[in-house]
Design a protein around this nucleic acid. Structure first.
Ligand code: MN
Ligand code: MN
Ligand code: ZN
Ligand code: ZN
Lengths: 156, 156
DNA sequence: ATGCAAATGCAAATGATTTGCAAAAAGAAA
DNA sequence: TTTCTTTTTGCAAATCATTTGCATTTGCAT
């Protein structure tokens, strides 16, 4: 348990250090202007743990500056996606939902009752995917693994 | 190689036998009327190997009966999906694409250049998914695994 | 054949996202 | 700072996939 606590702290530290990649620098480097709406949207993205959709981002944004438009949110998401700064998800078949792309790769488990999104990572699965693709004569560019589940009644 | 050919034949036989589950019977059982549009759409679905979207199904349908409407295609897809007769996919983020649900479960590898969809199946991955979900306290209701790849230059 | 609920076609509505365009803001230069 | 050029924005209208309201047709049990 002490060990467990130790790792939790390490994780938090990594998080704190890793947290906000300097997107503004990256944007400049890409010859893109750093505007007020973009700064606000980036802040929202880098400071949230969840996977908000454009509308949710928009609402959080107008809280800070009510002149921001939904189009700008969409345009910014497209821009950031092309830059590789964010990932776009289409859980279920709903509207696109986003998250910043900084950490290590992970996949998602969606609680079908609550809509909660839980992140997980499995090296084994990633490896198997590679093997399968290779056997079929392909290189994987990206992939998408989503588990849709319900809290189990069984004891853990 | 002889053995390989043998199994190919077995697979074809299974296919031929398995091919068209009696959807009309199933529909009746569900208290649903078996209409001309539905019969045509079912035929299209059961006799194709690919994963067509509503528009493609619509076009194939009006070839047989030009009075069929796109709304009916959509309504029928929803109906069949609820009955569990077909599966709906949202590759990339494009329009829904469908396939009949008869065979064993499989996942998809999408060729990012050509759009080709290749089916594959991995018991190992399925098992791992279960394990992961269980470890997180969940039961999987369904899942979605899509590999997006490009034909590899490397020798196989 | 008759009757009635269920299904259809068509057009209009929806929801998510994109786009055209005139006005505003960013950043380089002066 | 002021000026100038280019990018970005907000807004409204357009697009795309899908759904829905409603009058009409159809399936099918009687
Ligand atoms: Mn995530
Ligand atoms: Mn398939
Ligand atoms: Zn993964
Ligand atoms: Zn699977």
């Amino acid at each position: 348990m002490q060990l467990n606590a130790f790792w939790r702290i390490i994780t938090l530290m990594k998080h704190a250090l890793n947290q906000k990649p300097d997107y503004e620098k990256e944007l400049r480097k890409a010859g893109v202007r750093i505007t007020r709406p973009r700064r606000i949207i980036l802040d929202i993205l880098t400071s949230t743990e969840d996977h908000p959709d454009a509308m949710k981002i928009f609402h959080r944004a107008i809280e800070i500056d009510d002149s921001i438009s939904l189009s700008t949110v969409y345009r910014t998401m497209n821009l950031l996606e092309e830059m590789g700064a964010i990932h776009r998800h289409a859980f279920n078949g709903g509207p696109s939902r986003f998250e910043q792309a900084h950490g290590e790769h992970h996949d998602h488990l969606i609680d079908v009752d609550t809509g909660d999104v839980i992140e997980f990572q499995s090296d084994k699965i990633e490896k198997l995917q590679e093997e399968i693709a290779r056997a079929l004569g392909y290189d994987i560019i990206h992939h998408r693994l989503e588990l849709y589940g319900r809290k189990s009644k069984r004891p853990e």
